[in-house]
Design a binder for these strands. Structure first.
Lengths: 342, 342
DNA sequence: TTGAAAGCGCTAACAC
DNA sequence: GTGTTAGCGCTTTCAA
């Protein structure tokens, strides 16, 4: 094939329909279709169909300065927390003609910077940011450039961007109450790294819930990351170093909880017989772990959808204001929590 | 802010550097930098840096008819099989200046069509297709339009597109051998729907492996989908309808295997005591299931990387040929397989 | 080594 | 209701 690539342009359609290309443009765009004679419009549609015409989004975007794309910045698609969020975003974008451009940062500032430049070069109309340490330069620059953005699960520091998140405080409180009712008195919270805004929120909520619950003493340790590996290591350390073993653990998220389960197993401890474990997020496989994980369900798909909704609204209004949307969460009790050992 | 959005253009840089925009273009592109005086180039780079200039990819793409984007078509990002593949693709694309545009089809032909049109409208330079029933019209049209594509884990039917896949046959054979060595004689294969090319490949490999293994009798049933739910249902049906219960099951993939585990549990059967189970793919969670899943490890990240590599090569050469890359797989033995019951 | 000019494919003012 | 014209921001001949 010589020069085969989707070459049919608006001029091709125009000459086949016997009209000017401006008319084709009007006929093919919903917003301007009423300006053109119904018969002509039909002829144009027919010609476009026959030629397999697909408008060139780059040309359109260049003209309208509107790329109809949204940049989505996440740490790592491979983390099971993010795929539902991304799908939630896309579910909202797709029927509205927008496409998501995905950028994984692996929590590296260098990659964040490069990704952001790549997205800005593609002239994304807005950003959904679920990545961690982005507070700093990159996001600040984006804000100064007037880029619309919505934060997801991580606040924007001092930048006045909207934030969509789960209600961490009530989730943690529900977990503490659940454990207290099962008779647990020594509860450990394995928090995520301090540079994630959720880590602090959850740890604070944990301390508050413990101190307002009679007889419960809460301790907080920090994991180096929100991963299975980090959860495993942190729990190993707790089990070897501490004299008074906690009877229950509330993990910073489900991955950390899975790591805790592994650690317990390798130390010959049973869950929930010796130690109860609660996760956070309710990733898809929480119900298939061993034992099935009691966890705080966070509506991840909806978080994505909501973030996309708020972003498109800002784009349409050409203005945005700070705003925090806290979606309700709920404790899902499964097999990893049980009565405190006697 | 009035009119704030990334407005600095090549002309702004040109006037600040006191040169013509053509010179800026040459100075800023690696391929043409040698055409311009080193001093001038430095001045241009400085001006660009100072203004925070990021070239407009749409304008460039319009001019060069090269969008530097790749369309990635998958059924559902939420299926844990796909995130590693997508990351593998992006890992290869990103350092080369390409961006992936993701499209979820939910295995619907209507959505596939719409997604493909959206991608073609954005003038993607190529396609990685990991979606199912795409054989039909949409992909054929793309091929006729001269669009480059690489299939991933699903062949393209009669279309001469390259295919990247795992070595299904050796994986299944290894699983059968492993089970035979454990003394299993009645092995069941729960295949995926027939319209996925991998389903047939694996089922055929299963039959071949069984008939070439002394004393082993293999049966194949088909699940309605490659999902936990479908695996659960299919196994339920097997357990209630069949008189001679298989002592081992090789599932079409890990999700189906997890469904089988659920079914066994709900029927009061133990794994691997009563029935051994083998999965396929080795999704990340396979090691944390109950029991940990013996499964065929497929290098999903590498499959993505390889597909991207082949695609960019085709784009660069402006030509592509059919070709099948079969990546090696390996059996990972965990807790879900054990000796056949006496 | 640099500048001038044309044009990628589209939409939006402005005519008629 | 439709055609004409201009121009979005870039790269790439062609001249100088």
């Amino acid at each position: 094939m010589i020069d085969p690539l989707h070459r049919v342009t608006i001029d091709d359609v125009a000459s086949r329909a016997g009209v000017h290309k401006a008319t084709v443009s009007r006929a093919l765009n919903a917003r301007t279709r009423h300006q053109v004679n119904a018969e002509t419009a039909a002829r144009v549609a027919e010609a476009a169909e026959a030629l397999g015409y697909v408008p060139n989004a780059m040309a359109r975007g260049l003209r309208t300065s509107n790329s109809m794309t949204i940049g989505v910045i996440i740490p790592d698609l491979t983390n099971p927390f993010f795929p539902p969020i991304v799908r939630g975003i896309e579910n909202f974008l797709q029927p509205r003609g927008y496409t998501a451009l995905l950028a994984n940062t692996d929590d590296s500032e260098v990659i964040e910077r490069a990704s952001l430049d790549s997205l800005l070069g593609r002239r994304v109309d807005g950003l959904v940011v679920a990545s961690g340490s982005l507070y700093s330069s990159a996001l600040t620059d984006a804000h100064e450039a007037g880029v619309f953005a919505v934060m997801l699960n991580r606040d924007a520091g001092s930048l006045p961007y909207p934030l969509v998140t789960g209600n961490d405080a009530t989730g943690i409180a529900a977990a503490v109450t659940h454990l207290a009712e099962l008779g647990h008195r020594r509860i450990l919270h394995i928090a995520g790294p301090a540079d994630f805004s959720t880590s602090g929120t959850r740890a604070d909520a944990f301390r508050a819930a413990c101190s307002s619950t009679k007889g419960v003493s809460g301790t907080v340790v920090e994991a180096s990351a929100l991963s299975v590996e980090a959860g495993n290591q942190t729990m190993d350390k707790v089990l070897t170093e501490r004299r008074a073993r906690p009877t229950a653990v509330i993990a910073g998220n489900d991955l950390v909880a899975l790591g805790v389960l592994r650690s317990l197993r390798s130390h010959g401890l049973s869950c929930p017989g010796d130690v109860s474990v609660v996760g956070f997020n309710d990733i898809e496989f929480a119900q298939d772990s061993n034992p099935p994980l009691t966890t705080v369900h966070v509506p991840m798909l909806e978080m994505g959808t909501e973030a996309a909704r708020i972003l498109l609204e800002a784009i349409e209004n050409r203005a945005q204001e700070p705003l925090t949307v806290r979606l309700p969460v709920s404790l899902i009790v499964r097999g990893s929590t049980g009565p405190a050992p006697a």
